[in-house]
Each structure stands twice: as C-alpha cells, then as structure tokens.
C-alpha cells in the first residue's frame, strides 16, 4: 500500500461508499432529525447481505445507538465487515455491542457532535486500552481539527510494538505544537519500542 502523486491513466467511476471522513460533524439534533433517512438506508444495505432475522437484530442495535446520538455508519460498516467475512451472527452482535459501548465512551470524551470518523477511531483507541482522559487531552490540543490522524498514528505505532505511553507522548506533543498531519506519519516506531522489560507499560 503506497501513497502516490496523482497520475491518472484510467478513471473508473464505481460509486464507492462515502467514507466516514466525508461525513460532516452534525449536531445531535441534526443527527436525530436525519435518523429516519439513515435507518432506511441501513435497512437496505443490511437487508441485502443478511437473513432478515439477523438484519433485524443488527438494525435494533444500530437503532439504539442512533437514539443515543451515536452515528450509525461505523456500526453498519462493522456489521457488513462481519457479513463479508462470513462469521456467525452472534460474533457480529458482540462486535457491534463492543463498538457501540466504545463509541459511547468516546462521545463522552470528545462530544456527541464529533464526526463519525473521530468517534470510531477514538473508539478503536479506547479498545486498545487508551484512557478516556487522553482523548480529552487530545481534543483540547487539536482544537477543532480532526482526531483521526493523531489517533490513527497512535494505534499504528502501538500495533507495531511501540510502548503505548511513549507513543502517546509523541502524539500529544505534536498535537500541542499544532503539527501538520504529515508529521504524525513521520514518527518512527523503532524510536518508541521497549528496550528494557521495565520500559513496557
């Protein structure tokens, strides 16, 4: 996987899904007013991939999340992911329940009006053990800027073996210095791995 400069040789418009990042940070009231339309779309996507009993139960989980003001899209995508991977319905329900709980906690930290992409990435970070108060720190340091890149960098660094506390310090330092998104990409996980057993926390 490589990022490249624009070099069009063949363009095919295939109607890709609108990604989470393109979703605007709508207010809670706005999100609720969109709920009817959102759930109609959810039904359609889920209905085509799952037996009706499974689609209905997934719909119920998503419905309860949107009633709390949480975005539906990350949950829909996780359900579709489970469907594509051919796992049992119970595994999908469990995964959706975990994601809903993590997004709820993330929303308490960064606000229900945060973009869906911020909430789902924050939820992923919480699931790896990041303390919710860290999200509060990051929200404060980033102002109104998206949290996806710094949290994504933190998750990638720890996935590559960086000590979580060191990875976090590097990320929050950049955020406080108002660094550009590219700066997070440049963090080398090799600088942050544990060199002694007591370093790993």
């Amino acid at each position: 996987m490589t990022m490249t400069r624009f070099h069009p040789t063949l363009a095919l418009v295939l109607g890709l899904a609108t990604p989470l990042a393109a979703q605007d940070a709508s207010s809670l009231a706005g999100a609720r007013s969109q709920r009817g339309a959102e759930l109609a779309a959810v039904d359609q996507r889920l209905g085509g991939r799952f037996p009706s009993s499974v689609a209905l139960r997934i719909h119920g989980i998503i419905d309860s999340a949107t009633a709390e003001g949480l975005p539906a899209e990350p949950l829909v995508l996780r359900a579709l992911e489970g469907g594509a991977k051919g796992v049992k319905a119970d595994a999908i329900y469990v995964a959706l329940g975990r994601l809903r709980a993590s997004m709820r906690l993330a929303a308490q930290a960064i606000g229900l009006d945060a973009p869906a992409s911020d909430l789902s990435t924050a939820a992923a970070a919480l699931q790896t053990g990041l303390a919710p108060v860290r999200l509060v720190e990051l929200r404060s340091a980033r102002g109104t800027a998206s949290l996806v890149v710094p949290l994504g960098a933190y998750l990638d660094l720890t996935a590559r073996g960086a000590v979580p506390e060191r990875a976090w310090q590097r990320v929050i330092d950049l955020a406080r210095r108002k660094a550009e998104d590219r700066a997070y990409e440049a963090i080398d996980p090799a600088d942050l791995v544990a060199r002694r057993p007591e370093d790993r926390r």
């Binding site: 996987m1 490589t2 990022m3 490249t4 400069r5 624009f6 363009a11 095919l12 609108t18 990042a21």
Partner: peptide
C-alpha cells in the same frame, strides 16, 4: 469536495514511492 472525489476510482500502472499525495493510495 472530498465527498465528490470519493466516487472516483483511478487505476494507476506506475508505482511511486510513498510521498506527497492528495489521497492517492496504491494498494499492492
């Protein structure tokens, strides 16, 4: 504008190293 760009899929033959990109990702 980003939402509009999201519907474009561009197949590229030439692989470039990881560098400045406006969201162009080569999966390989």
């Amino acid at each position: 504008a980003a939402g509009t760009l999201a519907i474009a899929l561009v197949a590229v033959v030439l692989l470039r190293p990881r560098e400045a990109a406006a969201g162009q990702i080569t999966f390989a």
